[in-house]
Design a protein around this nucleic acid. Structure first.
Lengths: 228, 228, 228, 228
DNA sequence: AATGAATGAGAGTTCATTCAT
DNA sequence: GATGAATGAACTCTCATTCAT
């Protein structure tokens, strides 16, 4: 009816509605981002189960009810936080290593980058080590590269699963160690253990040298939470 | 209390009291054992944080109030359960490997035994993989053996910590995989990955052959909870 | 507000404002109607207390804030819905029975019409049976007719209240039964019980025959919500 | 084990356990009774949906958590309260009318008793009128008696359902009226309307006289909540 | 007038802990 | 020492209401 009787208002009204919609969406995105940013800290500090709703609303400065406008419970928030993080780390690393052709070198550089991030961002490190692995969230790039390495004969481990367990099982343990012994962060402990892993995977010393000769720009810090 | 008041009594009565005391202690031990037996199951199923007192009293068939006669809270129970388990596994493995002289072979056989247990006792495996490692409970035999191996030149890894992280980080990941893919239990996946670990540690093929040539009796099952 | 400010404007502007005012009022009426239409369904389904604001805005497709432009709370909406319904049913029945001169026959035909509506419109029936009676909303035509019947000697019940309780208490129970046993709708259960009521009221068989000999057009369905 | 080592304690211990069990059960019964007693008041005052847990725990003077040791939610409490009440009223009336042989007289006397109770116990009356009927809780004595009356030819209504709707639909409406107009309680309004109902059911004046000639002791008051 | 994100009081529910028996 | 009913603090979740756009 309004469309008919107030034809001259159509444009105004329509644009108003569009404007409102856009404003509303921006607001929602911003709030969602705030909640996840806060949640990352909270989960990293308290683990996956201990936090209560109050922790999240305090960390993000929102109202109790607002939380439930975005997530049904803490499990869902954990999942959203993890998803975002998986996306973030996969993209950040992928962006750096995609130009490397040899899958074994690519894998080696990728896990070096992965650990660099762990060394420079303790919150991220704690979240990954204590929550991500435990909940079984996964990224598939490494699995693929290990398989390619086996196929090409550059890796000698019995299976891709075997290689994956050796790589990430060890790295997780290292991350836990870094959290407890932060003095190790500045040492070359991480590179030593990565070398040990690569030896276990059967990587030749030539390739290992190549892996450790790479220089790279720092990965963009997670804090940004640019995409959502 | 009985110890004090007993002093005023004659022989007959004293022996009665002693008898009562002994009976009471047996009873205490038995109840404590029941609680820990139940707790092992509960923790393995639900993880370290989720369980509530009710889970424990149901699992062990005791009354609500009785729980508090033995433990102040679930954290204490978790700790007691873990302690018992650490003791149990350390003793069981130690008993088998102590006669092996070479520390590297001893280490290799020890972790094979460790994983045999994981393969044959799922509850134990789940508890170790999800709780023990997370809470950082430790056994020191392996650390010592790795160090001895480095000192003797039979291991080439940069440090004992490095060797420990590689070994147990990987094994933990394997245990998690076994829980998710039980069909792997019957395969030689575990021995393959142990071999890969040993390669990573720089163990010669001669020593590796020795490690895999060992035959042993099954470790006594944990269920017994003999000592407490 | 517009009425006041309009005074200071010239004719052209005034008519524009009038136009706007009229458009606005139409819009208001339409929205109000939408809300009440939705509310009728909601109340019938969930009863008077259970519904929450969300139910109403979903049923009518309006925004959360819009609701409060029309009603302060659900109680007010319930009242408005009931008022509208009372008006509707009273008018609809009145239009049919006003030409009948004998008050007892008029009462008899009126309650037959009332129940016809209940039989053909389940939502209406549910609303009336579960909410209207409970909240004590009333229509006075029947009360007047029963009194007139007593005065004329065509009814033998002790008092008008007594007749009213017998009539509408029973009819309400029948409506509840129809909701539970919809298979009765197509039977003559309703006419049988109306006959039983009339016997209780002391109506002669002659008058009862007259009441049941009436033919009528279906009452206009409530859905229209024509007036507001 | 204790059974063996402390044979002489068997009796003592067993009796202790029995004693404890009995004491515990008594306690439970007492608390459950307290809750239902309070709930009856609360439901009668506020209806079936409005009350919150706090109302119940205040009315019965128990702790918040205790409520949940007995009922999972208010709906369950409502059901328990209604069940108890149905039992109570059915038994109380049955005890009085069972000696009456003629089912029609029995029905008539039963509903007189029913309404006596409504007149003397306002809480009971309010609960029955606003909750019981609404929730469709039923007692089957009356239904049976009406059917027997139809079979014997002492009732002329078309079906037992019809008779039931007329009887209890009307009585419910009367109860609601009594709550609003308590001044009617002392009048013979109730007996008048019962007579009107009986006329509707086709009861002869002889039988109606018999029904109204009965004298009875007051029904035991509900408050007691003797059985549970 | 319409919108819908944000709010926070209040309701429901859990569960560690106490204590009389 | 064992029991389990009672407790209430702490937590989760709902939903009426406000208000900037």
């Amino acid at each position: 009816m309004p469309e008919k009787t107030a034809k001259n208002h159509d444009v105004t009204e329509k644009s108003t509605i569009n404007h409102r919609t856009i404003v509303g969406q921006n607001r929602r995105t911003k709030t969602r981002t705030r909640i996840i940013e806060g949640a990352l800290q909270v989960f990293a500090e308290k683990g996956p189960d201990a936090p209560v709703i109050d922790d999240f609303i305090q960390a993000s400065g929102i109202a109790r009810g607002t939380f439930y406008n975005y997530f049904d419970n803490t499990a869902e928030l954990l999942s959203a936080t993890s998803d975002w993080l998986a996306d973030d780390v996969a993209n950040a690393i992928e962006a750096e290593v995609s130009r490397i052709k040899n899958p074994v070198v690519r894998h080696g550089v990728a896990i070096r980058l992965f650990m660099k991030k762990a060394q420079s961002e303790p919150t991220w490190c704690r979240f990954i080590a204590t929550i991500w692995f435990q909940k079984g969230f996964a990224i598939d790039g490494p699995m693929r590269d290990i398989q390619l390495g086996i196929d090409s004969g550059d890796l000698s481990c019995p299976s891709a699963e075997c290689g994956w367990d050796l790589t990430f099982g060890t790295l997780r343990q290292v991350m836990i160690r870094l959290l407890k012994q932060p003095e190790l962060i500045k040492t070359d402990y991480v590179d030593q253990i990565i070398d040990t892993i690569l030896i276990g995977l059967g990587v030749t010393s030539t390739l290992r040298k190549e892996i450790f000769s790479y220089e790279w720009p720092k990965l963009r810090p997670t804090k940004t939470l640019a995409r959502i």
